[in-house]
Every structure is written in C-alpha cells, then in structure tokens.
C-alpha cells in the first residue's frame, strides 16, 4: 500500500468514476428498456457507438461542434431506435424474449458491419471540446472529464426523478408491472413503449457522444463495453433503474481500485462480482419491484 502513490490512486479513481459514468448511463437505458418492454436490448452498444459516430460525422462532414452534436446526435440515434422498435421489435413483442434478444444482436452485427465497411476498424480521434484542466495538488483533473462526471450525474438523477416523481414516470412504472391494466385506463401503451425505447436508445446515443473525446470513435467501441453493461444490469437487478445507476458507478470504482492493487484482476473483477451476486441475490442487489398478479 505504501508503494502506491496518491496520484496513481486518485488518477485511477477518476478513471473509475469516468468509466462508471458510462456504465451508469448505458445500464440505466438498458434497465428502462428491459423494465418496460422485457427486451434485452443487445443493440445498446451499437446505439452507443452510433452516437459517437454521429458526433464525429457532424463535426467532420457538417462542421457542427461537439456542443451541437450533444443535442443533435442523441435525437438522431433515438429516431433510429424508434424505427427499429417499429420494424424489428414490435412484430416480436408477443414471442419469447429470446427472439428480441437475437434480433437486437443481429442489428448490432449489421450496424457494426456497415460502419466498419464505411469507416474501417481503426478508431478515429475526436478532439476534446474542453482542453486543459485543473491541478488539485494530488492529481490533475481534465475539465472535460469533470464535465462528463457532472453531466452523467445530472442525466441519471434527472431520469430517476422523471421516473419516480412524475405522472409519466408513474405510467411507466405501472406499465412495467401490468401493461394491459394501464392500457385499460385509456393510456396509449404501444406509443409509450415506442417512445420509451427511443428514450433509452437516445441515452445510449448521448453516452456515445460524451465518450467520443475520451475513447477512440470506433465500430467496436460498443461491443467492448456492452458485456460489462450487461453485468452491471444483472448485478443491479434487471429493470431496476436505481440499481443500474448505483451499480454502474460502484463497479467503475471497483474496477479502478483493482487496477491499482491487483492490475491482473481488473478486467475480471466485475464478472467475479456478477457470479457472487447471481448466487447470493439472483434477482440483483437492487431487485426490481414485484409485479402485480
């Protein structure tokens, strides 16, 4: 322990928080989609990647800055999600979950293939919109990473407030439990499902835009993070939004701490936790709510 410098520890913790921010935002979208639709959205990683590519294309082909892309790209990706829900998921809604899982996985392969064909496999850099940073004494904190942390927290808290403390959120929670009953109240549940899916996909797109200046913009960026995101959602509790967010940040930090004290274990620690969580609490640490009968 005494050999580990404060700078290394805090540097890794910052990286852990940044990774955790992406884990939290992506797993939140996945949890929302699963909670309402019972769809394991395997395309979430591809939609995250599309957000990053949309930002890159907007900058390089249309001269639209990061700040413009932060608004436009999530909407574009959400529209992609809307079309995908109508064309791919809706026809499968009455079948076993496995069908939608396979369909979304197929969409992932198609989207990744198309992007790879167009832009190649090597990643492309995206300039940080906020260069520089602040020296905290024990570590250097880049401005952009601070922005990502704050933005991610605001997004997660805002989404949680929307779902837990608004009428729309009450509809979503109720439809999560018993969509037929909510529809029998006169609420257009099919449209709510489409818009919720688009919202979850838009969150993935937003995460992709925010990731572009930190990671390389590459066709495989989604699939490499996706397996971790699934682990986060399983550990947090399928369909539990607060569970997904809390677990996302915690696992990001755990991964970073492991990197400091036992670097060889950093890439597997999340999956060790997942196995332990599955054995000890199969429904997840923050189990989703009970359903109505």
């Amino acid at each position: 322990m005494s050999n580990i410098s404060t700078q290394l520890l805090f540097g890794q913790l910052l990286i852990g928080l940044i990774n955790g921010s992406f884990y939290a935002m992506l797993s939140m979208g996945l949890a929302i989609i699963f909670g309402l639709m019972n769809v394991v959205n395997f395309a979430h990683g591809a939609q995250y990647m599309l957000g990053a590519f949309a930002a890159w294309i907007l900058l390089n082909h249309f001269g639209i800055s990061y700040w413009g892309a932060l608004l436009i790209a999530p909407v574009v990706v959400a529209l992609f999600g809307l079309v995908m829900e109508r064309l791919v998921l809706k026809p499968l809604q009455n079948l076993d979950h496995l069908y939608s899982l396979l369909a979304t996985y197929s969409v992932t392969l198609i989207v990744e293939g198309l992007v790879r064909h167009q832009y190649g496999s090597t990643g492309m850099p995206y300039e940080s919109p906020l260069p520089g940073g602040i020296n905290l004494g024990f570590m250097f904190l880049p401005w952009y990473r601070l922005l990502v942390l704050v933005f991610s927290l605001v997004t997660c808290i805002g989404t949680w407030l929307l779902i837990e403390h608004t009428k729309l959120g009450a509809y979503l929670r109720a439809a999560n439990e018993n969509p037929n009953m909510v529809e029998s109240f006169g609420i257009n549940v099919p449209r709510m499902i489409t818009l919720t899916y688009a919202f979850g996909v838009g969150l993935a797109g937003l995460s992709g835009v925010m990731a572009a200046p930190i990671y390389q913009v590459s066709p495989s960026m989604g699939s490499s993070i996706m397996i971790v995101i699934f682990a986060v959602v399983v550990i947090g509790g399928m369909g539990s939004i607060i569970g997904a967010v809390a677990t996302g940040y915690l696992l990001g930090l755990l991964e970073a701490i492991t990197k400091v004290f036992y670097p060889q274990g950093a890439s597997m620690v999340i999956f060790v936790v997942m196995i332990v969580a599955l054995i000890a609490r199969p429904n997840g640490i923050f189990s989703a709510r009970e359903k109505t009968s």
Partner: peptide
C-alpha cells in the same frame, strides 16, 4: 379497436386480480 381506444369510448374495467400496482402508493 385496441384496449386504450375502447377505454376512451367510455368503458372502465376492474379485473378479478384487482391489479393494484405494487410500485405505486395508494394515492398514486
């Protein structure tokens, strides 16, 4: 018509299992 369209015509349904939402308070 779909269920929500039928409800909007003026029919309300109370099912056998009551379908009280566990995630919502009585007020909600």
């Amino acid at each position: 018509l779909r269920t929500y369209q039928i409800a909007r015509k003026g029919i309300a349904y109370c099912p056998e299992e009551r379908a009280i939402f566990a995630s919502l308070s009585v007020r909600e």
